[in-house]
Simulated assay, not measured.
Amino acid sequence: MLDPSVAAVRRAVRVALSRVAEGGTALVALSGGADSLALAAATAFEARKRGIRVASVTVDHGLQTGSAAVAARAADQARALGIDDAEVVRVEVTGAGGPEAAARDARYAALRAAAAARGAAAVLLGHTLDDQAETVLLGLARGAGGTSLAGMPPSRDDGGVAWARPLLGVRRAVTHAACAAQGLEPWHDPHNAEDRFSRVRVRERVLPVLEAELGPGIAEALARTAEQLREDAEAFAEMIDETIEDIVEPAEAGIAVSVAALAANPVALRHRVIRYVVDSEFGVALTRAQTLEVARLVTDWSGQGPIDLPGCTAARRGALIVFTARA
């Protein structure tokens, strides 16, 4: 009889693979941990029935002693599951934003390159419902807006490749049980026990306290909240896409937005338009405080001068809010 945990993971993967045509390729991001190992096993099983090729990539960040051996073992396990194309990629972790962000950037760059080399239709990532709940709590602690609290999307398109997280509705305990049921031995990342990482503290301390004090089901509730906020964010994005071309115009070294159009919109949409314009034109994500200062040029203008923002300035000039690139 098929173990319920194995069935749950396979069912989730089946939905993700339904978007991959017969003869296409799905690429599994395989760390060797329980989540990605259960994902790889389910993908190998489901893909065979659908005539889909499967490859895996294990990224060796080189940040821990013995990381090369861990990566090689993960690739060996993939081959034992029937994934013949199991590659290990060694990356150099450099860049700003701290080691976690730099490692993530290097990992995703390696996965993009691997997907492009194989013409993959989808890249499958092993994030679970627990990861989603942790992401929402971390965003809440930062005072992030609705877009951040929407968490990780189950799927997104990147250059024609679907980046999917089939296990966002599956608990971490289920992936561990699925590995045990199939005789798979996952790698246990020692970083997952180091409380210097905020995500580990949320996982090991915060969520258990919430479960104990407020009752079970907190992780599921946080994941539902993310799903609802993501729906709201998508609706706002559609509204912005429908109106943005009518309210913006080119400006010297920047872009301008109609004051009247901003004033006519509800506050939430006005703020999102401001953030959208700055992000798309200058590649900068405004904080809430910065967004509110720009909005005051629309709703509470008394002749105040330009506002300094990361990468640009914002100033009211007649009937326009003009965003200009900083020298």
Rank of each mutant, 00 (worst) to 15 (best):
103 A>V: 09
105 D>G: 09
106 A>P: 15
109 A>N: 10
110 A>Q: 06
110 A>C: 03
111 L>R: 01
112 R>H: 10
113 A>E: 12
115 A>T: 08
118 R>V: 15
118 R>Q: 13
120 A>C: 07
123 V>E: 13
124 L>K: 05
125 L>G: 03
125 L>R: 03
125 L>M: 04
125 L>Q: 07
125 L>C: 02
125 L>N: 07
127 H>S: 03
129 L>N: 01
131 D>T: 06
132 Q>M: 04
133 A>L: 03
133 A>S: 02
133 A>E: 09
136 V>G: 06
138 L>T: 10
138 L>D: 12
140 L>W: 13
140 L>Y: 12
144 A>R: 13
144 A>K: 07
144 A>L: 08
149 L>F: 05
150 A>D: 11
151 G>P: 14
151 G>Y: 14
156 R>V: 05
156 R>F: 12
158 D>G: 01
159 G>Y: 11
161 V>A: 00
161 V>I: 12
162 A>H: 00
163 W>S: 05
164 A>Y: 04
164 A>V: 12
165 R>D: 09
165 R>A: 11
168 L>M: 10
168 L>S: 04
172 R>Y: 08
182 Q>K: 03
183 G>R: 05
185 E>A: 04
186 P>H: 02
188 H>Y: 07
191 H>G: 09
192 N>E: 15
193 A>D: 14
194 E>Q: 13
194 E>R: 15
197 F>I: 08
201 R>M: 04
201 R>I: 14
201 R>E: 11
204 E>R: 15
209 V>S: 01
210 L>D: 00
211 E>C: 05
212 A>P: 04
212 A>Q: 13
213 E>W: 11
214 L>K: 13
214 L>G: 08
214 L>E: 10
218 I>Q: 10
218 I>K: 00
219 A>G: 04
221 A>M: 04
225 T>F: 01
225 T>M: 03
226 A>K: 08
227 E>Y: 02
227 E>N: 00
227 E>K: 01
229 L>R: 12
230 R>E: 12
233 A>Q: 12
236 F>S: 08
237 A>P: 01
237 A>S: 15
239 M>F: 08
240 I>Y: 08
240 I>E: 11
241 D>R: 13
245 E>F: 11
